[in-house]
């Protein structure tokens, strides 16, 4: 296990001085329901990418290619924002 810094080694005031360090802190384990993306139904409107509060929709060349489950907390906003006629994202129970 990684040795955590003692109180003298930490920046004061609980400040985090390293930019983008949230990437090192995986939060996918918080999820109780999980979005499943169907590439065949998807029209790549990118509503899900716009609304995702955690940058967990993976987009390559303007197309949704998947979901980053290391950070997705299963809030379901992507499934809600996906146009009803398309319904390319469905929420399923998380099983671990």
């Amino acid at each position: 296990m990684k040795k955590l810094p003692n109180w003298k080694e930490l920046p004061m005031g609980g400040l985090i001085l390293e930019a983008g360090s949230a990437e090192n802190y995986k939060t996918g384990g918080w999820r109780s329901i999980k979005p499943i993306h169907d590439k065949d139904k998807c029209i790549n409107c990118l509503n899900c990418w716009i609304y995702c509060p955690d940058s967990s929709i993976i987009v390559e060349d303007g197309k949704v290619v998947g979901i980053n489950y290391e950070f997705c907390k299963g809030c379901g906003i992507c499934a809600h924002e996906c146009p009803p006629k398309v319904a390319a994202i469905s929420m399923v129970e998380e099983r671990r």
Binding site: L4, W7, L10, M12, G13, G14, L15, I16, L17, A19
Partner: peptide, 25 residues
């Protein structure tokens, strides 16, 4: 040029150390 985070969440693994350092201040 030097972005920082203020007011981040601390769990059981860091809160105590941060409080200890404030006590020292």
């Amino acid at each position: 040029q030097k972005p920082i985070t203020v007011g981040a969440l601390d769990f059981t693994d860091y809160y105590f150390e941060h409080r200890r350092s404030t006590a020292e201040a």
